[in-house]
Design a protein around this nucleic acid. Structure first.
Length: 710
DNA sequence: TGGTGGGTCTTTTTT
DNA sequence: AGACCCACCA
């Protein structure tokens, strides 16, 4: 069968597909057929006679890789079995496992997940007796954040603190000590974290020339998707794999870079042509996804970016309908209105062709409750992952112990349910096991029956090697009473999760691989899109996907953009790109929800909000505005009336931020805000925010750009 | 000495 | 809802 490249691809796409020799960089705007291009290129290579096993496809999620391979298979009508595809991390994991000796892990290693890493940081902190009694001492989450940021950006912790967490600088010495202790702990326990996967592979490729040559020979054709979200070490890995003149194609969009927080470096994409000599650069600019009114809005979002992107997407898809901005009275009524909207979409689209997007995982909770109440099925991406659920981790800890009795973290988890045994006792038991202190162990087993049962069970499992699925079956039977005891309220739901785990395990013959895959890619079963279930997703997890109807919720200051991102201009820029990614997911209908108040857990009250700056700055011509009336319905906004319920609604879109953003920031005094009117500046907050006491509105923190200084 | 339970604060994004 | 601290109890 021959592929009709003439009709299936436009000229730029065709060029990207047929240029198979030498380095290629494809700059692909949102919805410009990037995936299509990769898929056809895969097919084209195989049709040319390339052996599928000579192709390496690196993507951002394993799901993306599988989808592309499947599509290429259906075009070709033959199997692409043997093609290597997946994330950098999973590729690294597989390669390292085959060469564990070379990187100093003679007995293999265990891959940790985020929670494991955080717990080690905390443990190290406690061992070093740091931060005792300091209530505002950085949380373990923050500790690990600094450690991995420093690694991913390849900067010292000092530089990280200086650049993006100035308020934490008093803890610099502590962070350095903790980072050292963390590294040591990992080495001593043969543990590897996500970052290590990349750095160890980098090291391996650098030092082991035969292996490097072997991989270069094997992977004749390399494709890397989402290149704007790679970091420095990933770029080095690509370079090692490709050699300087390899056939390597990178695809990306600088306007869609949303992983800088994780060390992603847009410079990678810009420098790419310099690193790979003779690189051909191809731009895909026509959008095939969205109707023009949606693109009019997304182009406006990019206009506000300080780093201008050379992008102005156009589409031939017409529509009379403008995107809509809806102002519900609260996040509670927002949930109700979104449900109504989903029901409306349902008359036109399949539910899996409709998505609700949000900035952070917790923001969908009220909506999940509302959907459950009316009986609409949903599938959620982002937020807590399958393997992070407490009951799954419990069960996995037993599996880990079968494999590796030195896994202290797993021991802590496995003994958690034993009453009367806490962290200290676990440490003692652990030590006793490793010094063969049988007497102490016997004593403890006598004292704590469940401990004895646990050790007996583990011994039994270790002495009879079996497939992962059958080991898991025994473990689940053992865990059953513990599950009910630990989670009396919702154990049936968790039970279902455990059964799902059994389903996954059936496909594995190697326990270590099962555990690694779970940490790296979550639940492979869950990655299939459920029929007729509306999709709820964080914007990050929505990357690369598209739906006919897209709803974005919680478009208010402190949520989208995130509160944490309001302090630094660069972070706010990334939020803007995130907003761009979110809106460009929509094919036909885009709805933006801006609740006037949201529930604040800290205060236990509903608090008024400010609309997201990304909404405020949109010209009124690109959207229709709807307000929720007190009766609960939606009404198209008329000219601003005198009897508006809340002044928050009175705004006209705020025009471009004043062109003098650098105006001496330290100045205090009186200022004016479009919505809140005049106020007194109480304090300046680095680098561009002010605490202002508004007459009649009280204290607010506002970005300098939205204030007029009087 | 170490475990447990209650009270209090704080939530980004992901491999 | 979770994480963390502190005070009380075995």
């Amino acid at each position: 069968m021959s592929i009709d490249f003439e009709n299936e691809l436009n000229e730029a796409q065709r060029e990207a597909v047929t240029t198979t020799e030498g380095p290629v960089l494809v700059i692909a705007g949102a919805g410009s057929g990037k995936t299509r291009t990769i898929v056809y290129r895969l097919a084209h290579l195989v049709q040319m006679g390339v052996d599928p096993s000579q192709i390496l496809l690196l993507t951002f999620t394993r799901k993306a890789a599988q989808e592309m391979l499947q599509r290429a298979e259906s075009i070709l009508g033959r199997s692409l079995h043997g093609t290597s595809g997946g994330t950098f991390h999973s590729f690294a994991y597989a390669t390292l496992r085959q060469n564990a000796m070379d990187i100093g892990f003679d007995n293999g290693f265990t891959l940790m997940d985020r929670a494991d890493s955080e717990n080690i940081c905390k443990e190290v902190k406690d061992t070093l007796k740091l931060g005792k009694g300091d209530r505002s001492y950085p949380r373990k989450n923050t500790l690990l954040d600094m450690v991995t940021k420093s690694r991913n950006k390849e900067l010292t912790i000092e530089a990280i603190l200086e650049r993006e967490a100035y308020h934490l600088s008093p803890y610099l010495d502590d962070f350095n000590e903790i980072a050292d202790g963390y590294r040591q702990f990992k080495r001593e326990h043969a543990l590897v974290d996500y970052d290590d996967l990349l750095f160890l592979l980098d090291e391996l490729l650098e030092k082991n020339e035969p292996l490097r040559n072997q991989l270069q020979t094997r992977y004749k054709y390399i494709m890397v998707d989402e290149y704007q979200d790679t970091n420095l070490v990933q770029a080095r890995i690509v370079k090692y794999l490709a050699g300087t003149k390899g056939n390597v194609m990178a695809v990306g969009d600088d306007a869609q870079s949303i992983y800088a927080f994780r060390g992603a470096n847009v410079a990678n994409i810009l420098e790419y042509p310099k690193i790979f000599e003779g690189c051909k650069v191809i731009r895909l600019e026509q959008n095939y996804r969205s109707v023009q009114p949606i693109l009019d809005l997304t182009n406006e979002i990019l206009k506000g970016a300080t780093t201008k992107f050379d992008k102005n997407l156009y589409s031939e898809l017409k529509s009379d309908r403008l995107p809509r901005v809806v102002y519900p009275l609260s996040d509670q009524t927002q949930a109700r209105l979104v449900v109504d909207q989903i029901l409306d979409f349902k008359r036109k689209y399949m539910l899996h062709d409709v998505a609700v997007l949000f900035r952070a995982g917790y923001q969908s909770f009220p909506l999940e409750v509302a959907l459950t109440r009316v009986g609409i099925d949903y599938q959620k991406f982002g937020g807590i992952r399958f393997h992070e659920a407490a009951h799954i981790k419990d069960v996995l800890s037993y599996l880990r112990l079968v494999l590796n009795p030195h896994d202290l973290l797993a021991w802590q988890r496995a003994m958690d349910h034993i009453k009367g045994v806490g962290p200290k006792t676990v440490a003692k038991i652990y030590k006793a096991m490793h010094t063969d202190d049988e007497k102490y162990l016997a004593k403890m087993m006598k004292k704590h029956d469940p401990l004895k049962e646990l050790l007996v069970e583990l011994n039994k499992l270790r002495s009879t090697p079996a497939r992962p699925a059958s080991v898991l079956e025994s473990v689940l039977a053992f865990y059953q009473p513990i599950l009910i005891e630990k989670y009396p309220d919702d154990y049936p739901k968790r039970q279902a999760g455990l059964e799902q785990l059994s389903q996954i395990a059936v496909n594995y013959t190697d326990m270590e691989l099962l555990l690694g895959d779970l940490s790296l890619d979550g639940d492979p079963e869950e990655e299939k899109r459920k029929e007729n279930a509306v999709v709820l997703s964080t914007v990050h997890s929505a990357k690369g996907l598209e739906w006919s109807g897209v709803i974005i919720i919680d478009l208010v200051e402190d949520r989208f953009p995130s509160r944490k991102a309001m302090q630094r201009a660069e972070d706010l820029e990334e939020e803007r790109r995130l907003m761009y990614v979110a809106c460009t997911r929509a094919k036909e209908q885009l709805m933006l929800f801006v609740p006037s108040s949201v529930f604040n857990r800290a205060s236990g009250m509903s608090e008024p909000t400010l609309p997201s700056p990304f909404i405020m700055e949109l010209p009124e011509t690109v959207y229709d505005r709807l307000n929720e009336s007190y009766g609960g319905g939606l009404e198209q906004r008329r000219r601003p009336a005198a009897s508006r319920p809340s002044p928050v609604f009175e705004d006209d879109p705020i025009e471009e931020p004043p062109s003098n953003p650098k105006a001496s920031p330290k100045k205090l005094g009186v200022c004016e805000h479009k919505i809140y009117g005049k106020g007194k500046i109480i304090a300046y907050i680095e680098p561009n925010k002010y605490r202002v006491n508004f007459f009649g509105f009280g204290l607010k923190v506002i970005i300098g750009d939205y204030l007029k200084f009087l």
